[in-house]
């Protein structure tokens, strides 16, 4: 338990340190940067295929990402709760 608290603290430190040590950085996606390098190596490169559908705005995109995370977390918590309840039930029986 104590070990896990330390691990959680390390995790938070990694995120906070990344933000703190790069004040003013853009924090764009690594793929956006890769596009830059591809254009540098191959000037005039045009992607030959475009996404079939793109979220119309950053808001819609964050809605979809939030949904993805919420659905996943929902199932994870359902399963953990089910396991905990079952193991307690067994212990009582």
């Amino acid at each position: 338990m104590k070990r896990n608290l330390i691990l959680i603290a390390i995790m938070l430190c990694l995120v906070v340190y990344a933000l703190y040590s790069n004040q003013g950085a853009e924090f764009g996606g690594a793929d956006g940067q890769a596009e830059g390098v591809i254009e540098e190596i191959n000037p005039g490169y045009e992607p030959w295929f475009n996404p079939i559908w793109e979220p119309p705005s950053g808001e819609i995109e964050s809605l979809l990402f939030a949904l993805q995370a919420a659905l996943g977390t929902g199932f994870i918590c359902y399963y953990l709760g089910y396991s905990i309840g079952r193991s307690k039930g067994r212990a009582q029986a």
Binding site: V15, Y17, A18, L19, S21, N22, A25, E26, F27, G28, G29, A30, G32, Q33, F65, A66, Q68, A69, L71, G72, T73, F75, I76, Y79
Partner: peptide, 26 residues
């Protein structure tokens, strides 16, 4: 159930875009 659990974990983690020391996100 446990397979779905592993899938759900993949779903959640790949939605977490985190800042890195390089000043970009992954």
């Amino acid at each position: 159930l446990l397979l779905a659990f592993a899938g759900a974990f993949t779903f959640v983690l790949s939605a977490l875009k985190l800042p890195s020391v390089t000043g970009s996100c992954s």
